[in-house]
Simulated assay, not measured.
Amino acid sequence: MFDTKVALVVRNDLPTWQKLNVTAFLATGIAAAAPEAIGKPYMDASGTRYGSMLVQPIVVFGADVEELRHARQKAIERSMLVIPYVEAMFRTGNDEANRQAFLVEAVDSMNLVGIGIRGPKNGVDKVLKGFELHA
């Protein structure tokens, strides 16, 4: 049905509010980076107009930090769109502070709490092979 796949991978050991926060931010990152994946606005039977959403499903997986690091690396090696979120970003108050928190993360030990991936369907499936859907 779709040539591409959108997947979010969120760390299993986070409190629920953080899981939801990360999921929301990652989804907006995918939408911002892939405007061609945004559908038309919705309208209800009374003519009230609503906002648009991605035209394809988003699959959400759970993982630990090592699995997140591995998936991030594999997705980058395959030139996929990767949206990262690191734990230090929970302690910031704005976008610039988020960028600074991310900038100091060492690539090999990045304290990832989530990643968003968009790419060819079969490629995303290969990157996330063995991952389980988030419970």
Rank of each mutant, 00 (worst) to 15 (best):
G123A: 13
T28G: 07
V82G: 02
V86D: 05
L128M: 10
T92C: 07
Y50N: 01
F25P: 00
F2E: 12
T4I: 10
G130W: 05
V124T: 09
F90E: 00
L128H: 09
E77A: 13
A32C: 13
A27V: 01
F2M: 12
I83V: 12
N111M: 12
Y85W: 14
L133Y: 05
P84D: 14
T16L: 15
V10D: 01
R49A: 11
A106N: 09
K74R: 15
T48N: 14
Y42M: 09
A7N: 04
R91V: 00
D64E: 06
V86L: 02
R118A: 09
R72E: 15
G51V: 03
I83K: 01
V65G: 02
K129G: 00
V60A: 08
P84V: 09
V9G: 03
K5L: 15
M43P: 00
V65E: 13
A106R: 11
M43H: 09
L128C: 07
I115N: 05
L20K: 04
K129P: 00
I115Q: 04
V86S: 01
E105N: 07
K126H: 13
Y50R: 02
F2K: 10
A33M: 11
A32F: 15
N21A: 07
W17H: 13
L128V: 08
I58R: 13
F25C: 09
